[in-house]
């Protein structure tokens, strides 16, 4: 004890300059590419800028414009809907898959790998794979025809009513395996004694799930929640590759609207303001994540 204590103190007395450099170089790299641009981003949200002439300060003008922007409203609603649907379903399906595949038994490695494999695909490749399936003469319509549901056939991505959901499915396909891996680790951490005790008391499987599994997974749930919200708000690639937010903005998310506003319409001030909205939506989760990280860090 005393030895560790004195070691601590001698560590504290003198920090060699090399060690300072070890921290400062990465910190400066991040400051240069992240913190400084982020500050600029917040400032630009208060301006009107076409990228060529100097930015013109307009105060909160961009934000009051959003109130009357119907595309913004669609994108904001879609983003929240995306968060709930994509988030809720990937958590539920991921937990379900983890519960199904938690026991070590023959063949389990294959099943887990099958569900996990899409995680390593880029979202663009994922999108293109599904785009082929969604074509009017693609697999999905063919299957519907074959099972006698020919009337359900759709041009899934070209139809305003279905485009949004057609884009969520590939994203889910890719996310479920990721969430499953997080839950598998969580399930492994539950002390088996708890289940044995519950069984002695005559608890059913459902009761065990409700009163042991779910409460024990609380910390993993928090992780999954953060991952899902941050991933949802970042979702861009899959929508961009499949629909570009169309048709008629029916699958528009804030992230795609921000991108097209900024880099296609070249309204950089308004685009920055949209990015600030995304930041505000993500802020609660980021703060929660950091608070947990802070507690863990010592």
């Amino acid at each position: 004890m005393a030895l560790i204590g004195s070691a601590r103190r001698s560590r504290a007395t003198r920090v060699p300059p090399v060690v300072l450099a070890f921290v400062l170089v990465p910190l400066l790299a991040e400051a240069f590419w992240v913190f400084w641009p982020a500050l600029q981003g917040f400032y630009l949200s208060l301006t009107s800028w076409d990228g060529l002439s100097a930015p013109k300060f307009v105060g909160l003008g961009n934000f009051s414009e959003m109130v009357h922007d119907s595309v913004f409203r669609t994108a904001a609603i879609d983003t929240v809907l995306w968060l709930l649907l994509f988030g809720g379903l990937s958590a539920a399906l991921g937990l379900g898959a983890a519960l199904l595949l938690q026991q070590e038994r023959r063949g389990i490695g294959f099943y887990r790998a099958a569900l996990f494999l899409p995680v390593v695909f880029s979202l663009v490749a994922t999108a293109l794979v599904w785009q082929a399936m969604y074509q009017p003469d693609g697999l999905i319509n063919n299957v519907l025809q074959a099972v006698g549901l020919g009337s359900w056939q759709h041009a899934w991505l070209a139809d305003q009513d279905t485009a949004f959901y057609a884009v969520i499915i590939p994203a889910l396909w890719r996310q479920v395996g990721y969430v499953m891996v997080l839950y598998l680790a969580g399930l492994k951490g539950i002390d088996p004694v708890l289940y044995e005790a519950a069984r002695v008391d005559g608890a059913t499987r459902l009761q065990q799930f409700r009163h042991i599994t779910l409460p024990q997974l609380r910390s993993v749930n928090a992780v999954v929640l953060s991952v899902i919200v941050i991933d949802s708000l970042r979702s861009f690639d899959v929508v961009w590759a499949l629909t570009r937010g169309g048709p008629y903005h029916s699958s528009e998310l804030l992230s795609t609207y921000m991108y097209s506003t900024s880099f296609q319409s070249l309204r950089l001030g308004y685009g920055s303001a949209l990015a600030v909205v995304i930041f505000v939506l993500a802020f609660g989760v980021i703060a929660g994540y950091l608070v947990r990280a802070f507690r863990e860090a010592d």
């Binding site: 992240v34 641009p37 949209l274 990015a275």
Partner: peptide
Amino acid sequence: MLGGNLLPPQILLIPV
């Protein structure tokens, strides 16, 4: 440093 990574990249796109 962790916080910087959690930022939505959209806020950085134009300045970067």
